[in-house]
């Protein structure tokens, strides 16, 4: 499988800053970014950086990974509901699978997602780790 270099470069704002979009017409905020608002179909859409805090909506632990992720098995993936509303699909980190619970508060961190072989590209991006609840 190729390294898809331009694709990973292109996704940097989403991967490193959790940048999605905000619709100036209907006020809807969504992730990932799109050219057209999925709520009202307006094209009046601007970039929006999410705060990176949310709660676990659902989770699973992967034992049979896709090619390229074998070295990380078992790892825990989740749907995280951001405080601003949207769901994000991401891995959980710094937590044992058996300690994960639905509604657990989490926060975004930047971690290695995968590496394309010994000399290949290392892909970084967002993962989520347990967070203390905001007072």
């Amino acid at each position: 499988m190729s390294m898809d270099l331009p694709r990973h470069w292109r996704l940097k704002q989403a991967r490193y800053r959790l940048e999605g979009s905000h619709c100036e017409d209907c006020g809807h905020t969504f992730f990932p970014s799109r050219l057209i608002c999925p709520e009202c179909r307006s094209e009046n859409v601007v970039a929006h950086q999410f705060g990176g805090r949310g709660r676990v909506y659902s989770y699973s632990t992967v034992y049979n990974p896709p090619a390229g992720y074998d070295e990380y098995v078992p790892y825990t993936v989740a749907l995280v509901q951001l405080d601003e509303g949207p769901l994000v699909t991401a891995q959980l980190t710094d937590v044992d699978p058996e300690d994960v619970e639905i509604d657990m508060p989490v926060e975004m961190v930047t971690r290695r997602l995968r590496q394309y072989g010994e000399d290949g590209l290392i892909v970084y991006g967002y993962k989520f780790r347990p967070a203390w609840e905001a007072a």
């Binding site: 990973h8 989403a14 659902s58 699973s60 992967v62 896709p66 639905i102």
Partner: peptide, 26 residues
Amino acid sequence: ADADYEVDHGLSFVALNALLMRRYMH
């Protein structure tokens, strides 16, 4: 599935269905 926002994060197709099943059970 979505290559940029699901699969790159290590999600297999089974894992995506597992997320649905877990939430459904909950």
